[in-house]
Amino acid sequence: MDKQFKGFGLTISHVSALSGGLTNACLKVEAKEGSFVWRPISLQAKILGADRAKEHEILQALSDESFSPNVYGENEEGILVEWLEGEVIALDKAQDVAVDLLCSVHQISLDKLSEQIKNKPMSLKDRIIDYWNSITPENQTPEMEAYFEYFSQQDEQAFFSHCLCHYDIGAYNIVVKEDGYGLIDWEYASMGDPSQDLTSMIIANQFDMDDVISLYCQKRRLNIDEWKRAVIHWTPWVTFMGALWFSLGYQLLKNTCYQELAEREMCKLIKLLPSIHK
């Protein structure tokens, strides 16, 4: 414990484990200096694609944004991030707020980001390949293998100019604060095609696709038809990536809930691309 918080200069009064999330194993740290979330660097986080160094830099770049938590510092064990006071938003109240936050993220100035981050966008294809290679053979089903072979041979199409993307705007990551809304868990944040981020948000929350695309495009004065084509294109990609993520969750935690969620996503994928499933 002492090693984790080395170098932060905190007068700690209480540390408690936070529940939820596969990559996290996060802790709430209460100290004289304030309340924080400890986000460790772990093998589990790395397997699932979380990058604490990138998360730290992106949060630093967002220090002037009201919706993002401030980052307090980092060491070789992890990063320390501001605890946002408030409650997680209810899913039935999340849609408009989530779209507003997504628009805000996609329009952030990139001036404060390093060239390394700006020049290394998120690749759904690479993430799918990484997840697949981390799943042990006994957890690889024939259906998953067939779809992996399909996606690994596809070119990843670029629809729109890259911008900063969060890649996990679920209601579970939106905090209702006294003065607005906060967006937490930036561990997957990266440069990327904003239509991928929009697709991920729709799927994560099971929002109505047409409603959300229309709302997003109205707010940003974009062409709805173009964005709908992009979301339809990415939906099988994101669905399969989610299935692999849940499968890895089952492998790492042995929780059958994740296995059931992986099977649910595979059922969706088979309906989206039935010709791949033979």
Rank of each mutant, 00 (worst) to 15 (best):
E77P: 00
P142S: 08
F160D: 04
A98T: 02
V97Y: 01
K6L: 13
G249Q: 04
E187A: 08
N133P: 06
I135L: 10
Y181D: 05
L269G: 06
E85H: 12
C217A: 09
L110S: 03
F8Q: 00
V88D: 04
N75Y: 00
F67D: 08
N75H: 01
F159P: 05
G86K: 05
E87T: 13
C217Y: 06
I276H: 09
P40I: 05
D185E: 03
I213V: 15
Q259S: 13
V29S: 06
I213K: 02
L198C: 03
L215Q: 15
P40Q: 05
E57Y: 07
N205Y: 05
S13C: 11
W38K: 09
N205A: 03
L102A: 08
I203T: 00
F207R: 06
D168C: 04
T239E: 07
E87F: 05
A171H: 15
V231N: 02
S104Q: 14
I232S: 02
Q116P: 00
M122Y: 15
P137T: 08
V238G: 01
P137L: 10
K112A: 10
D210C: 02
E263R: 14
D197R: 01
F67M: 09
T141A: 06
D126G: 00
F36Q: 07
T256D: 14
E156R: 05
I224K: 12
L62T: 01
L59D: 01
S123M: 05
L222M: 14
D51W: 09
G180K: 01
Y167K: 03
L183S: 01
K32L: 09
P121M: 04
S161N: 15
K177G: 08
W237M: 07
D126L: 14
Q157K: 13
G21D: 11
E187F: 11
I174V: 14
N24C: 03
E33H: 09
E143S: 15
P142D: 09
D197M: 00
V176K: 14
V71R: 02
D100F: 08
G180H: 06
A189F: 08
Y216F: 14
I79V: 05
H56V: 00
K6E: 15
K278S: 13
L101H: 06
S68E: 06
W237E: 06
A50N: 12
I224C: 01
P194F: 07
Q140A: 02
D211A: 14
A31F: 03
V29G: 01
